[in-house]
Design a protein around this nucleic acid. Structure first.
Lengths: 214, 214
DNA sequence: GTTAGCATGTAAGGAGTTACATGATTTT
DNA sequence: AAAATCATGTAACTCCTTACATGCTAAC
């Protein structure tokens, strides 16, 4: 398997292609628009990833539209549009069902969250809670380590600590809101499974997180 | 050179050892207390780094104290305390003088900031401003990409965007405050160079950033 | 007609992690 | 005397980046 199981890119690509077929160049722009605040992918990782997904039969080339075919007669076509195969849709579902550390660590959480629309309510909740515990552990660790520190710190170090703590605390509060919304939503409307025939058969109980507090 | 130039760990290790000699295990705990909100290092990267710094003559083993020597008679000593060499101090200064992308990218900014106490005022300012532009570019890129997006996004994606934008905007505001403080501080007391004889001879004009606004 | 941006790809390598292996020291 | 945690180290591997190489296509 050329693409390892922990691969964030794989999920990002499959998730994006599930929405609509795309070629590599545009796919990258999409991903960097979607996740640009958290991470950015380069072509050097994207194209090899597409290739290995193709080899594994998870994606396939979409035949060019008539308009594109005209230029295609010259020889090699300049755009290669990929779409998910049935296997790819299965694989995507599999990835979206995972709710371990691979879903809530820094590098992966954003990507998993970005495709929450296609994720089961139960899994969403586990991921959100997992991420929250992860961050709380981090707060705990740094706080106790800091408490054990004898020497007084310089003001730059203090400022860095303060800013770091504040950022993480903010994310925890954000997660708390999301979790509350998830739970109330899940209680109000029990999950309903719709057979759409496209391999992603679960419709979330509501349109997603409606922000309850500001 | 076993440790590449872009190595964040090298700076983190040299910076920590400049404060006080340490052995690997404790060094890691220190670093993870100092930077735990941003990143964490594992032993698998720390020990090889120490080894290569040792090979390069940037650090050296500190002879054990009499108390430690007692147990050392049994054979191999269980703690290896490292301290900076003269070359190591030079190298640290060199690293602290760099103010390119390698200082203000996500992975490295925190580490550089953590040792701002030992960094020249001018370099501090360039790093803070570089980071700010970096984040502003990111905001710009995501915002325009989002503006070009035709389809309406689901609420999870929107929420992710909102949270991401807010976090980055917060960091920009934080940087603005720090930059303002740096500038006023630098204006008030022109930099004074103190010969301390330990290789780090520059004392910042004040104790660092005194938070001016909340 | 030439610059800028679109589009695809590869080779080499960097910066780390995980998992393992081992033994010393302290606590209970 | 068992368990925890302190302490050091290595091999294999992952995931991604940088730098390069190439050609197409639209705009000015």
């Amino acid at each position: 398997m050329a693409v390892g199981k922990g691969n964030v890119l794989e999920l990002a690509v499959l998730g994006s292609l599930h929405e609509t077929p795309l070629h590599g160049y545009e796919l990258r722009k999409r991903l960097n628009a979607l996740l640009g605040m958290f991470r950015a992918f380069s072509y050097g990782s994207l194209y090899p990833c597409l290739r290995s997904l193709l080899n594994d039969g998870l994606i396939m080339e979409e035949p060019p539209t008539p308009a594109e075919s005209v230029t295609a007669l010259t020889g090699r076509r300049s755009k290669i549009v990929y779409k998910l195969t049935a296997e790819g849709k299965e694989r995507l579902q599999e990835l979206l069902t995972q709710s371990g550390p691979s879903a809530w660590e820094d590098e992966s959480f954003g990507v998993h969250f970005a495709f929450f629309r296609h994720t089961e309510a139960e899994v969403r909740l586990r991921i959100l809670e997992g991420r929250r515990s992860r961050l709380e552990e981090r707060l705990e660790g740094v706080r106790t380590a800091l408490a054990r520190t004898r020497e007084r710190l310089d003001s730059y170090t203090l400022e860095l600590q303060r800013h770091g703590l504040e950022s993480v605390e903010r994310e925890v509060r954000w997660l708390n809101e999301l979790i509350a919304t998830e739970r109330s939503g899940a209680r109000a409307v029990p999950e309903e499974i719709i057979e759409t025939g496209d391999g992603i058969g679960i419709r979330p109980p509501d349109e997603g997180p409606q922000r309850t507090a500001e």
